[in-house]
């Protein structure tokens, strides 16, 4: 099959007004002296699917946690919708974090797990249950709402975790190697579903991965990072049209991007190694 015909990108690049998250000169030095990140500048615009790609230890998780306000930058600044983190959570400014492992409560059913953010916010029971049903349908877990996490496969647990993220109807999804622990077939399936969801719901996603193929398949823009100290080495725009599907994976274009990133990544790893 040939590459799919061009469809308009849901993103108009370069519009400053559409900046959702602005990282300016944010640097991270841990208490033990580890310089995890050099001052980083990164603007994330509405509707982008950004992937942070880089060798282990280059500070991808650190950067993502700072964006999620789970870590404070040592110096520099991060703005969310042009404001401080206090305003995050207001309507249209919702941000959720999806962890590497599903992080479900073993004592609660899938429904209980997915409903948690609404329960914590004190949402009304009926309304919450309706939203949970929607979220479960989106990830294809409707039939498993009463199952316990241990009764689900790894992929299904991850779906439940994503449903829990979606139930608050977020605008920005931050994902740290969410499918890293899964086999390739399951991972490809979840990548496709995530991408469709992003396209349909006009989400903004910041995604961390080790996989070049995952990065090319998903992203509007790949941020390649290098280690020691962690820094942004290059940004690569993936100018392939959406919606993307299996045909894209086997296209010439895909292979080209993968090759470019492979070279960059090798360079990034070497750059880190020299300073060892």
């Amino acid at each position: 099959m040939a590459a799919p015909h061009p469809a308009p990108l849901p993103v108009k690049h370069g519009e400053r007004e559409n900046t959702v998250i602005e990282v300016s000169g944010a640097e991270k030095v841990f208490a033990n002296g580890t310089r995890a990140l050099e001052p980083i500048d990164l603007g994330i615009r509405q509707g982008e699917f950004i992937t942070l790609l880089g060798p282990s230890g280059c500070g991808k998780s650190t950067l993502l946690k700072m964006i999620a306000n789970l870590l404070e930058p040592s110096s520099g600044d991060i703005r969310w919708w042009g404001k401080g983190f206090d305003h995050v959570g207001e309507d249209g400014k919702k941000l959720v974090f999806v962890f590497q492992d599903a992080t479900l409560m073993p004592w609660a059913s899938v429904r209980g797990n997915v409903r948690l953010p609404l329960d914590l916010a004190g949402a009304e029971r009926k309304l919450a249950d309706a939203r949970v049903d929607q979220a479960l349908a989106l990830v294809g877990l409707s039939k498993f709402d009463l199952s316990y996490p241990r009764q689900l496969s790894g992929g299904m647990q991850m779906r439940a975790s994503i449903a829990r993220a979606l139930v608050t109807e977020p605008n920005v999804l931050l994902m740290d190697e969410p499918f890293g622990a899964l086999d390739e077939i399951t991972r490809n399936k979840l990548d496709q579903d995530l991408l469709d969801l992003w396209y349909e719901k006009k989400l903004t996603v910041v995604f961390v991965t080790h996989s070049i193929y995952e990065a090319v398949f998903l992203s509007t823009r790949v941020v390649v990072m290098a280690a020691r100290p962690g820094r942004i080495m290059r940004e690569v725009k993936i100018d392939a049209p959406y919606p993307r599907n299996e045909a894209f994976r086997v296209s010439q274009e895909f292979a080209m991007y993968a090759r470019d990133l492979q070279l960059l990544l090798a360079e990034a790893s070497a750059a880190g190694a020299v300073e060892d």
Binding site: L70, G89, F99, T103, M105, W107, L116, D119, L120
Partner: peptide
């Protein structure tokens, strides 16, 4: 308590009481 779950609760702005009842007590059971 699973640190990931604790982060999740914090990100959802859970009160200390909610953390205790919904997370710490079931984890401790």
């Amino acid at each position: 308590v699973n640190p990931g779950l604790l982060n999740l609760f914090k990100m959802n702005k859970a009160t200390r009481f909610q953390q205790l009842v919904r997370l710490r007590i079931p984890s401790a059971a």
